[in-house]
Design a protein around this nucleic acid. Structure first.
Lengths: 146, 146
DNA sequence: ACTTCCTGTAACTGTATTAATTACTGTGAT
DNA sequence: ATCACAGTAATTAATACAGTTACAGGAAGT
């Protein structure tokens, strides 16, 4: 397994909402920053809205963040777009008549959960505020060099 | 992102080598425990051999672990079969003329690396010895109930 | 009110990844 | 010498994503 770019794109989208906070923010404009299609953006916004991270009004081009930046963690975004799917997947069916095949799922699940929890704890420590701060720092570095 | 069942299957395979340590261990027999095809097993064994975790001799049905159980960590197995691929992937190309699009990869890579490292640290703490021990405990539980 | 722009979704397509299958070469064991 | 098996390439099949098209309905400007 492997996490799709949905997670990255969702973070991108939310940061974009903050940094380009203006009246007219269409899915087309956001899509041009992510370099994807507006439909993908709208689908992402659907998930983020369901998770209570943004507010949108159909027809109006005015999506807004539903919470302060520092109260949106990367983990919340991860759950919003990747949901329940575990990072590590166990083989759903193995030979039950074998000491290994009959018990491996039970055993692995526990260790996999530990590993995933460790990663999630790290994601929980970072907020959108950190991301936006870093984006602006990186941008300033570039401008200083040009 | 998401880790394929290769990782689980590789752990399964190695545990099987230990628990059914006998003269005649064909890829067919191992495959019947994982419930996959013998070719998949041989491919997995190829990667595990390259990583120095097992020893095999073509033609002989006698794969063996190359190290003591407690010196094979889940992380070593993970690297052997999943290698370089990161858990979280960043969108390879976003709009460079945008504050977000032009800097998001740099920023995310850092936080993604932290999260992955946290997960890997957890995998490093668990050895095949732990897995085999747990498999036998689970098996004993089952037998106690029957 | 009417027109235009936009969102929210469904349906379909293209593509990449993974596992399964087939087939072959070459080594080991008897 | 024969049989069993490993190693590996090539093909097929299944699945998951992202991209595209299409359209119904809401919002905004005139």
């Amino acid at each position: 397994m492997r996490v799709s770019t949905r997670f990255s794109d969702a973070i991108h989208l939310l940061a974009f909402l903050k940094i380009y906070d203006q009246q007219h923010l269409t899915s087309d404009l956001i899509a041009s920053s992510i370099e994807t299609s507006p439909v993908v953006v709208r689908r992402l916004m659907g998930k983020l809205r369901q998770a209570g991270l943004i507010k949108t009004v159909p027809g109006s081009a005015q999506p807004t963040l539903a919470k302060p930046l520092d109260q949106i963690s990367l983990l919340a975004i991860f759950y919003a777009v990747e949901g329940d799917k575990p990072l590590f997947s166990v083989d759903p069916k193995t030979n039950p008549d074998c000491i290994v095949g009959g018990n491996i799922q039970t055993v692995l699940r526990q260790y996999y959960q530990d590993a995933q929890t460790a990663a999630e704890a790290r994601l929980a420590k970072t907020s959108l505020q950190d991301i936006v701060d870093n984006l602006l720092v990186e941008q300033a570095k570039k401008e200083a060099l040009s």
